[in-house]
Write a protein that binds this DNA or RNA. Structure first.
Lengths: 114, 114
DNA sequence: CAGTATCCCTCCTGATACTG
DNA sequence: CAGTATCAGGAGGGATACTG
């Protein structure tokens, strides 16, 4: 039946392909935008710096979110084999390209939310 | 102590005022962007239409998300006192102003995520 | 310093059934 | 038609302690 096929097709589209949903799942959430935002203005940050700069985050959450962002190729992790350990995080080009979006969201939010 | 005050001030800023975090909390998530996106292209939709159009959503979730969006003044709910009930949802001007953001997110997502 | 490991608990969500 | 009521399950997230 034609109408049924149409519905199925539509549903599939929305469930698996909606790019906005994918974005929200992968970049949204409580911590990822903050991390990206900090790296946009600070260029390079160490784990501890991020930890101190983000209020309320736990080390567990921070390392988890950083891993996620690394997998998405949005940030680069550079580890130095020294004691004590030193690890640097910075944005990739792809990560930097989020600046425009985050800026627009920030402006809209400032004007429309509180 | 000056440095301590600085830290406290910084933390407060990030925790309570970060507009991007506020945006993600209020407009992000699994369903709200989809609802807004549908209303951007369809102008007016009834509860049942939204329910059918959004794959996997439950009535409970749908009504909850619609209430949230209404509170944010992003959508308008118009109820007709007829039997069977008829309720229409449409975007407010504020809601429509999200089109630009969602479009940019969609484009970025299409190019950078999968 | 830069993380893991562990426990614990809340809240989000889905499923189902019901109603004005 | 447009919701609400209720319950259960699981993932997400916090607190704390530990380690290379």
């Amino acid at each position: 039946m034609k109408t049924e096929e149409k519905i199925v097709e539509k549903k599939y589209q929305q469930a698996k392909e909606c790019p906005i949903t994918i974005f929200m799942e992968q970049i949204g959430g409580k911590w990822k935008p903050v991390i990206i935002w900090l790296l946009l203005s600070n260029e390079v940050m160490r784990f501890n710096e991020l930890d101190k700069a983000i209020d309320g985050i736990s080390q567990k959450m921070l390392s988890q979110q950083l891993k996620d962002l690394e997998k998405l190729n949005l940030i680069d992790r550079k580890s130095y084999p020294v004691i004590p350990p030193k690890v640097e995080y910075r944005l990739t080009e792809k990560g930097k390209s989020l600046k425009e979006i985050l800026t627009i969201i920030m402006n809209w939010s400032n004007q429309n939310l509180r």
